[in-house]
């Protein structure tokens, strides 16, 4: 069978004994039917028995074998080595999903992930009739509203690919917990929809801190498109009247107000409307922009041609209220 030679740089670290991690360089030949998990096994069986990683089902269901290959979140049992070689070439680096949370080699302390998962009430809340006379039927059109969010296997691929979690704000729930929230806020049987939406509406932890980078959508091995679920949670916040009146919600609503007036966005007005009195903190920045001719004065504000059309379309197509 045709084989390809690869050079692997493998992250090695033992939190109990090591001060710093190091990388082992291993060369091997891989065949086209081997997945990344096969190679993790071979590293342990053929090179170093102390090499440590999590794995269980080998079928993309248990979610335990996520690692990073050249920085890409990868469910080891799902991805073929040939595809990794096609993406990154013949030199591949295996890291744990989070180097800073490594316990031993590929094994990380995932307690942050689970803590956030628990924050969104990750279970169905419903009055259960203990002596039902018939089945509790969920019609297909109701089940479809979940958009497969219930297929999430909690592997952490999206969560540890999220730049907000990784680089900026450790408190942010991250995509996996938000997908979990959506899984229940879209479930017609659930009675805690508002409670859960109030949790994800909170600034600094909830949906408003998503930077819309699509790293989660790119990373998800189950192709659940977490980003679109975060958008839908935003929509539900407005549908259910849960969205608090704050800088973030006004920022979303402000777009409609501005488009209604100009067609285009009135950038200055948007910031002023979103920030309210706090708009003054933007003065130094606005001054720097003004000096460089980057501020359009209200009387020069450009307008879209055929603005009447836009106004009419907004009038007849609006579906949300604030």
């Amino acid at each position: 069978m045709e084989k390809t030679k690869v050079t692997l740089n493998v992250f090695r670290f033992n939190a109990e004994t090591d001060y710093l991690p190091h990388y082992d360089t291993i060369e091997m030949e891989v065949s086209k039917d081997e997945v990344v998990l096969d190679v993790l096994n071979r590293i342990k069986w053929e090179h170093d028995g102390s090499f440590t990683y999590r794995r269980s089902c080998r079928h993309g269901i248990c979610g335990s074998c996520a690692i990073k290959v050249n920085g890409r979140s990868t469910l080891a049992c799902k991805e073929r080595m040939v595809d990794m070689i096609e993406l990154f070439g013949n030199e591949l680096t295996f890291d744990p999903v989070s180097r800073s949370r490594a316990i031993k080699d590929m094994v990380v302390d995932k307690s942050d992930f689970w803590k956030k998962h628990d924050s969104v009430i990750p279970y169905l809340k419903a009055d259960i009739d203990e002596h039902p006379e018939s089945e509790n039927i969920v019609p297909p059109q109701e089940a479809e509203k979940l958009e497969e969010a219930d297929y999430c296997i909690q592997c952490g691929c999206c969560y540890y690919a999220c730049p907000v979690v990784n680089e900026a704000n450790e408190d942010y729930f991250g995509p996996a917990a938000l997908v979990k929230a959506y899984r229940f806020t879209s479930d017609s049987r659930d009675s805690a929809k508002k409670e859960r939406l109030q949790i994800v509406d909170k600034l600094s932890v909830g949906v408003w801190d998503c930077v819309k980078c699509f790293e989660c959508t790119q990373a998800c091995p189950k192709e659940l498109d977490p980003m679109s679920k975060i958008t839908k949670l935003h929509n539900q916040l407005f549908e259910e009247g849960v969205a608090e009146n704050n800088v973030a919600s006004r920022h979303a609503v402000g777009f409609k107000k501005s488009i209604e007036k100009h067609g285009l966005l009135d950038e200055g007005m948007l910031v002023a409307y979103s920030e309210g009195c706090a708009v003054f903190k933007h003065v130094p920045e606005a001054l720097a922009m003004w000096k460089k001719g980057k501020i359009v004065m209200p009387w020069d504000m450009p307008k879209s041609k055929n603005l009447d059309e836009i106004k009419k379309l907004i009038k007849i197509s609006s579906t949300a209220k604030f």
Partner: peptide, 15 residues
């Protein structure tokens, strides 16, 4: 007009 910049989408997807 403005594309909504992914923010109008959070408020009113259909619009």
């Amino acid at each position: 007009s403005c594309c909504g910049a992914s923010h109008l989408q959070d408020f009113d997807d259909f619009l």
